[in-house]
């Protein structure tokens, strides 16, 4: 029984987590081929083991501006989203942490529920708000502020609104965790000694919340870097982030090795943030 309790999840993790990662690694140096499936493995058995790795996909990622720009855009959008979530999430987390005790759980639930309630419906809501005949343009026109509709949808604005909306709960949770543990007597002591509220905030609250803020930033940055759906549905056509580039290589170009190489490169880009995040979590 005890052995089974270990063996079953271990086999599962080996087959469905470890093996797939190895397969992607293998495919990223495979030859593209005309058959079904459209690739030739980087090794073959022909009287002996024959190695035939293909380094072209990775060469392409480094040499072609298209892919380089995809990675830069992903960094920019993920970093921007994480930064905005931090700015918006900090006052929210502070508000919850300093609310009356019986209010904290319901408020936290109000922040977390949208996270678990339908990702696509929320993106759909932004389409309804932002499109040319949408709610925002309707209101602005009703007020007489604009004559022609503003091109809000399929813009960077729509992209960032959608991203921040989707990922904000990720940022509030770690911020709340660190702010709710903060010793309030430290702030009291500072203000008793004559510090203004602004100084207390800058010299006590902010430094003590820094590890939580870093965790919040990373928790948003990591999934945002590979995001596909929001740039596709809300962003401008030229917002080709890594997730979108990978999707196109796989579904439109049917170039599986390049798609796999993009996945490996994305993981390589995220390995440092992931390690840093895990270290922060382990320290708690």
């Amino acid at each position: 029984m005890r052995r089974l309790q270990l063996l079953v999840p271990a086999l599962w993790l080996a087959g469905f987590v470890a093996l797939p990662l190895l397969v992607v690694l293998l495919l990223s140096i495979a030859q593209p081929g005309p058959g079904v499936p459209p690739f030739l493995l980087p090794f073959a058995w022909d009287g002996g083991l024959v190695l035939r790795p293909n380094w072209e996909p990775f060469g392409l990622l480094v040499a072609d501006d298209y892919y380089v720009s995809a990675f830069l855009q992903s960094l920019w959008v993920a970093g921007g989203t994480a930064g905005l979530c931090l700015l918006l999430g900090f006052p929210m987390a502070l508000g919850i942490a300093r609310a009356k005790p019986h209010w904290r759980a319901p408020l936290l639930m109000a922040v977390l529920l949208p996270f678990w309630t339908g990702f696509l419906p929320r993106v759909g809501a932004w389409i309804g708000l932002l499109r040319d005949e949408g709610w925002v343009n309707g209101v602005l026109r009703g007020l007489g502020w604009i004559d022609a509709p503003l091109p809000l949808l399929y813009s960077d604005l729509a992209l960032f609104l959608g991203m921040v909306h989707a990922y904000l709960p990720f940022a509030v949770l770690p911020l709340y965790a660190s702010l709710s543990r903060l010793d309030l007597t430290l702030e009291e002591a500072a203000s008793d000694l004559g510090a203004t509220p602004a100084t207390v905030f800058r010299t006590i609250t902010l430094p003590l919340a820094a590890p939580g803020a870093l965790a919040a930033f990373l928790l948003v940055f990591i999934p945002a870097a590979g995001e596909y759906v929001i740039p596709e549905l809300l962003g401008p056509p030229e917002a080709l982030l890594v997730g979108r580039a990978l999707w196109q290589e796989f579904f439109q170009n049917r170039d599986w090795p390049v798609a796999a190489a993009l996945a490996v490169a994305l993981l390589a880009m995220l390995i440092l943030p992931i390690r840093l995040f895990q270290r922060l979590e382990a320290r708690r």
């Binding site: 999840p9 271990a10 993790l13 080996a14 469905f16 987590v17 470890a18 093996l19 797939p20 990662l21 397969v23 992607v24 495919l27 990591i222 999934p223 870097a225 590979g226 995001e227 596909y228 890594v242 997730g243 990978l246 999707w247 796989f250 599986w256 798609a259 796999a260 996945a263 994305l266 993981l267 995220l270 992931i274 995040f277 895990q278």
Partner: peptide, 23 residues
């Protein structure tokens, strides 16, 4: 074991999807 158990939480969706499909 712990690293693999937590991996799906931090892997980007496109990587999870592609890697499982290839498998």
């Amino acid at each position: 074991f712990g690293a693999l158990a937590g991996a799906p939480l931090v892997l980007p969706e496109v990587v999870t999807g592609l890697s499982l499909l290839l498998t």
